[in-house]
């Protein structure tokens, strides 16, 4: 079976299960809503302050929400040892990872599409003129988070302290993406909105590196 078709089968299975349980999306939605609301009410920032803190806040919210969600994606496979059934199937092991990466990416993207306007209202920053570019930056960063997060979730699924371990492993590896994402978002939400090509290149470049490494190491990553 081709990698595309087996990835598609795993992705479809992930979406079907999530549409029935809402386990992952509920976790993310409530966490982001809490961060957006709490910071807004606690600091009541002015427009200028909002422009300074919002990029960091958006990335902080989505990073930790993603971490919470990603922890669960392989734990789900342990309940009935379904990972063994996937490993037993005659498919490229990378299809298991890529199917889950795409599913996690879609769940986070949906959250971002819902919450960027909410952040905009809570912090009184008009994001509509730069919405397309902002979503591009968020999607590129989110893809990196989904790739690395899914890989580390597979590696830490059987660890006892996985809730602590996953963010600790993710932060250093994702630092370039988070820095580029925050910088690009700051430029977009600044007084003179624009976006530096270097940040987009950095986000895209790291996505390519993460995907290539995942593809090369997939056999090892889904081993016992």
């Amino acid at each position: 079976m081709s990698l595309t078709r087996s990835t598609g089968a795993v992705l479809a299975k992930e979406l079907k299960i999530e549409l029935r349980t809402h386990d992952l999306t509920n976790t993310v939605l409530f966490f982001v809503l809490m961060v957006a609301g709490l910071f807004s009410f606690a600091f009541s920032p002015t427009v200028q302050e909002s422009r300074r803190i919002l990029p960091g806040l958006i990335w902080l919210a989505f990073f930790f929400a993603g971490t919470l969600m990603l922890q669960l994606c392989f734990v789900r496979e342990q309940v009935n040892d379904t990972l063994a059934a996937l490993r037993l199937a005659p498919i490229d092991p990378s299809a298991i990872l890529f199917g889950k990466i795409l599913a996690n990416f879609l769940f986070l993207v949906v959250t971002e599409i819902v919450f960027v306007p909410i952040f905009s209202v809570f912090y009184n920053v008009n994001v509509w003129p730069v919405m397309g570019q902002l979503l591009l930056v968020l999607f590129l960063g989110t893809f990196g988070l989904s790739v690395v997060g899914t890989v580390f979730s597979a590696m830490t699924a059987q660890a006892r302290m996985r809730e602590l371990l996953l963010p600790l492993l993710l932060l250093p590896v994702l630092a370039p993406v988070l820095i580029a994402g925050v910088e690009a978002t700051s430029e977009l939400l600044g007084a003179h909105p624009g976006i530096g090509r270097e940040w987009l290149s950095m986000l895209g470049g790291f996505d390519v590196i993460y995907v290539t490494a995942t593809w090369l190491l997939s056999g090892f990553l889904v081993e016992e």
Binding site: K13, I17, R20, V79, N80, D81, T82, A84, A85
Partner: peptide
């Protein structure tokens, strides 16, 4: 060419 019936069912409860 291999089939396994393990301790756990190896199926998804939600499906």
């Amino acid at each position: 060419r291999i089939g396994l019936v393990a301790h756990k069912a190896l199926v998804y409860d939600e499906l």
